[in-house]
Design a protein around this nucleic acid. Structure first.
Length: 427
RNA sequence: GGAGAGUUGGCUGAGUGGUCGAAAGCGCUCCCCUGCUAAGGGAGUAUACGUUAAUAGCGUAUCGAGGGUUCGAAUCCCUCACUCUCCGCCA
């Protein structure tokens, strides 16, 4: 959520920033609502003040044994007017809150304008696309060996966009999770957490998935309002919801392995082949809670932490900064890391690292005591994938494949495979 | 799932219709005193929102959440959430 004061005082600047996201702000309607709000709230509050004063006077009169009836008569007349004023005030405030909750974060000055992912700007490229002396297969064909990666079984058990892994592929999947968690905790300074994969709606409002993106979520059909998490960003970031942190607790760096569940409504026909886009996938997430002045450096650091996984695995990738049309709702600036997939002959997203500034913190009321100002201030929150496990598995299979369809195990993963050095050796 | 007890400020905890945004203690901050030191004395110490140049005043709201009764609710009523104890079930 944006600072309501920003809407009041710098409406034009907010509108300019929204334009970079291709979001049109109805400034005329907003300023009209705002002036109604001001008037309605003042009126309701002054009537409340009047009632409170009268009530106090009644109490005092009764305590002294005086007749309180004249004041009672007077305050009775206030009743309906007060009720109406309160209703009007809360009505207009609800309208403003609804608009505000639907507005995305302000983008950073670095964010380029653009309409979709084709306008994202490449920042750097690490490694060269893997070259092969033969025609490389994609992960679906590679994984078909021995039913190691089985989409028919997934469809039988659940439906489309589900998969079953077994044998070497299942083990590679597990090894990648271990490797990522070990790297983030031992090398990059994150604390590992295990959190619920089901959350309530408060948590989803906190990180911004609700109210706007309900259709992307799996909602449980039970009495309580429960949702499957679309990413562990939701539970992990919400660890600091409604919390007042001490300055010396910051920065907090969490990493978390979880399953992620996405309905993928609106993605019909996209990435229907293979493991790229599934209803359920696993991810190792990074979340940082930092002081506001540190968040931009933290974004650079976190992006490099995600990159460190691909560097260790020695898989080529590039980093892009997302344009206004592609950046997520809560983010002020986002770097996507795109990994080279020989099977698609393209770079594909494997991580997304975002600085959400105070956008989520305001929704969550996540604050810290700033010793410099003596005030309680909103923290900044960041999140990034470190990395998406399924897509990393695709990248390993496709980049490390050999002509006979087997796959060499990257050196960084040897510790998780005993003496084994090759996957999918036997047809 | 059954029965019972709870949810108050950074913490402990009092408060069952009216000067209660809330006693007391602890903690913390500042000041004072003191060569006997896990000492003493004093003052201060919730948050959000509105108004405002203001972190000055003033106002509003908040005692788990939401609703109700009342001129007035931490206190009474209803619904919900969560915590604890015992029983049952269970990975």
């Amino acid at each position: 959520m944006l600072d309501p004061k920003l809407i009041r005082n710098e409406l034009d600047r907010v509108a300019e920033k929204m334009a970079i996201r291709n979001v049109t702000l109805d400034t005329a309607k907003l300023s009209e609502l705002e002036s109604i709000r001001k008037q309605a709230q003042s009126k309701a509050e002054s009537l409340q003040a009047e009632r409170n004063a009268a009530s106090k006077a009644i109490g005092q009169a009764k305590a002294k044994g005086e007749d309180a009836q004249p004041i009672l008569d007077k305050v009775a007349a206030l009743g309906n007017e007060l009720k109406a004023a309160e209703a009007a005030s809360s009505d207009v405030q609800a309208q403003l809150a609804e608009i505000l909750m639907g507005l995305p974060n302000l983008v950073h000055d670095d964010v380029p304008a653009g309409k979709d992912e084709s306008d994202n700007v490449e920042v750097r490229r690490v490694g060269e696309p893997t070259s092969f002396s033969f025609s490389p297969q994609d992960h679906v064909d590679l994984g078909a060996r021995g039913g190691s990666l089985d989409f028919e079984q997934g469809a039988k058990l659940a439906g489309s966009r589900f998969a079953v892994m077994q044998g070497d592929v299942a083990r590679l999947h597990r090894a990648l999770i271990q490797f990522m968690l070990d790297t983030q905790t031992q090398r990059n300074g994150y604390i590992e957490v295990v959190v619920p994969f089901i959350v309530n709606s408060d948590s989803l409002y906190g990180t911004g998935q609700l109210p706007k993106f309900a259709e992307d979520l799996f909602k449980l059909n039970v009495e309580q309002e429960y949702y499957l998490i679309p990413t562990s960003e939701v539970p992990v970031t919400n660890l600091v919801r409604d919390t007042l942190l001490e300055a010396d607790q910051l920065p907090l760096r969490y990493t978390c392995h979880s399953a992620c569940f996405r309905s993928e409504a609106g993605s019909y026909g996209r990435d229907t082949r293979g493991l790229i886009r599934q209803h359920q996938f696993e991810k190792v997430e990074m979340v940082q809670i930092v002081r506001p002045e540190d968040s931009w450096q933290a974004l650079e650091d976190m992006t490099s932490h995600a990159e460190s996984i691909l560097q260790a695995l020695d898989i080529p990738y590039r980093v892009v900064v997302l344009c206004g049309g592609d950046i997520g709702f809560g983010a002020s600036k986002t770097y996507d890391i795109e990994v080279w997939l020989p099977g698609q002959n393209a770079y594909r997203e494997i991580s997304s690292c975002s600085n959400c500034t105070d956008f989520q913190a305001r929704r969550m009321q996540a604050r810290f005591k700033n010793p410099d100002t003596g005030k309680n201030e909103l923290v900044h929150t960041l999140n990034g994938s470190g990395l998406a496990v399924g897509r990393t598995l695709i990248a390993v299979l496709e980049n490390y494949q050999q002509e006979d369809g087997s796959v060499i195990i990257p050196e960084a993963l040897h510790a998780y495979f005993g003496n084994q050095r090759v996957l999918l050796e036997n047809d």
